[in-house]
């Protein structure tokens, strides 16, 4: 398997520490008899911004969903923030509260207001006092530029606004790592930009991010490493410049020619 691994990225636009945030070694996952993830090895350093690309069905979403144990892996080892992921529920809940996740379909809680969506987890998981949680929530809602929507319900917001609320909701838990699972795939074109702007801003503040996305412009702008997956394997990873201008693996070349070709 041609794996031109560049585990220690060369100087990027933003400094990356050499502290390890996520270490995945030799990880395998099956759905029944179908081998979805095969021998995944990946080290993510604190402050890194990684974009995972690849054709649909290549296992990109499954990979990041394994990191916060939304999916179980059957073999191999995942270490998040110094905690090894085991099947122990307490252990999983600890990791989940440190790792924020943004979904393709937002998954806001429709029966709660925007503010309640943001304060729920801090109040119940972190046991933050209510007024303090609300202050934090308003801070992050201002950051994603929709503080005026705080008392509305998710159903009253546009898709782009909902996705920004979803980002704010994750940030309210003060996560050390953020996972984005195709955050703009369900959005209308004019709303994609407002969500990407929020993500760029987050990246510039040094958040450790792993994004599954088809937004190659975003990858060029903020990623310091692009990973290409196909058939459940990491096929190629490199800095964005090299990845886009000089892809090595034929599968990568084919993929890039298909998505950049028009």
């Amino acid at each position: 398997m041609a794996q031109t691994a560049v585990d220690t990225p060369s100087p990027a636009k933003l400094e990356v520490s050499d502290e390890v945030a996520i270490q995945i070694s030799n990880m395998n996952k099956w759905y029944g008899t179908f081998h979805v993830l095969r021998d995944i090895d990946l080290t993510v350093y604190r402050g890194e911004r990684i974009v995972i690309a690849g054709p649909s069905g290549s296992g990109k979403s499954t990979l990041i969903r394994c990191i916060n144990a939304l999916e179980e892996h059957q073999r191999g080892r995942i270490e998040v923030d110094g905690t090894v992921l085991s099947s122990d529920i307490k252990n999983i809940d600890t990791i989940r509260s440190e790792v924020g996740m943004v979904f393709q379909h937002f998954n806001l809680f429709p029966h709660l207001t925007i503010l309640e969506n943001c304060t729920l987890a801090p109040i119940w998981v972190r046991k933050t006092p209510k007024h303090e949680a609300e202050k934090t929530a308003m801070h992050f809602l201002e950051k994603v530029k929709i503080p005026e929507q705080a008392d509305k319900y998710p159903g009253q917001l546009s898709g782009g606004q909902q996705q920004r609320v979803a980002i704010a909701r994750s940030l309210c838990m003060k996560p050390r790592i953020m996972l984005f699972d195709e955050p703009t795939s369900a959005l209308d074109p004019e709303m994609i930009k407002e969500v990407l702007d929020t993500m760029v801003e987050l990246a510039e503040e040094g958040m450790t991010m792993i994004c599954v996305t088809h937004e190659m412009g975003f990858a060029r702008q903020v990623a310091n490493r692009v990973i290409f997956m196909d058939q459940g394997q990491i096929v190629e990873q490199n800095e964005p410049e090299e990845f886009f201008n000089n892809p090595q693996n034929p599968r990568t070349k084919l993929f890039l020619s298909q998505i950049l070709g028009h």
């Binding site: 939304l70 809940d93 998954n107 809680f109 838990m173």
Partner: peptide, 11 residues
């Protein structure tokens, strides 16, 4: 997604 969102927040 509602189950997953609740899980991913650490509830």
């Amino acid at each position: 997604g509602q189950y997953e969102a609740a899980d991913s927040l650490g509830l």
